[in-house]
Amino acid sequence: MKSSIETLFLVIPGLFSAGAFAVEEDFWDRSYQQCFQSADVVVEGRVIGYEKVGYNGNEKFGYSHYLISIEVLKSIKGFEGSNLKYHVWYEGKKHDIEGNSLFCLCANDKGEYGDPEGFGRLSLGTSYQSYLAKRAAGKIKPIDEQGKYYVPYCGA
Rank of each mutant, 00 (worst) to 15 (best):
residue 31 S to L: 14
residue 127 S to Q: 13
residue 136 A to G: 15
residue 104 C to Y: 01
residue 133 A to Y: 10
residue 49 G to R: 00
residue 119 F to Q: 14
residue 67 L to R: 11
residue 71 E to N: 03
residue 101 S to V: 03
residue 11 V to W: 09
residue 5 I to H: 11
residue 62 G to L: 05
residue 36 F to K: 08
residue 7 T to I: 15
residue 111 G to R: 04
residue 43 V to L: 02
residue 74 K to D: 15
residue 18 A to C: 09
residue 29 D to C: 12
residue 54 G to K: 05
residue 104 C to A: 05
residue 91 E to P: 00
residue 82 S to D: 15
residue 112 E to P: 06
residue 56 N to F: 13
residue 64 S to P: 03
residue 85 K to I: 01
residue 40 D to A: 04
residue 31 S to Y: 05
residue 108 N to T: 08
residue 108 N to F: 07
residue 34 Q to R: 11
residue 147 G to C: 14
residue 21 F to I: 10
residue 122 L to T: 00
residue 39 A to W: 02
residue 9 F to S: 10
residue 108 N to K: 12
residue 77 K to Y: 03
residue 84 L to F: 06
residue 153 Y to D: 02
residue 23 V to G: 08
residue 155 G to C: 06
residue 122 L to Y: 01
residue 108 N to W: 09
residue 9 F to V: 11
residue 16 F to C: 11
residue 61 F to C: 13
residue 73 L to D: 06
residue 110 K to F: 12
residue 99 G to R: 03
residue 12 I to D: 08
residue 93 K to P: 02
residue 58 N to P: 04
residue 91 E to K: 09
residue 14 G to D: 05
residue 60 K to Y: 14
residue 92 G to V: 05
residue 5 I to D: 15
residue 30 R to E: 11
residue 139 K to E: 14
residue 153 Y to T: 00
residue 94 K to M: 07
residue 62 G to Q: 07
residue 41 V to E: 02
residue 106 C to I: 01
residue 18 A to W: 10
residue 102 L to V: 05
residue 12 I to V: 15
residue 49 G to Y: 01
residue 57 G to R: 12
residue 74 K to H: 12
residue 122 L to D: 03
residue 117 E to G: 10
residue 75 S to V: 03
residue 96 D to M: 07
residue 45 G to W: 01
residue 21 F to D: 12
residue 97 I to R: 01
residue 10 L to F: 12
residue 62 G to K: 03
residue 88 V to G: 01
residue 121 R to S: 03
residue 55 Y to F: 10
residue 82 S to T: 13
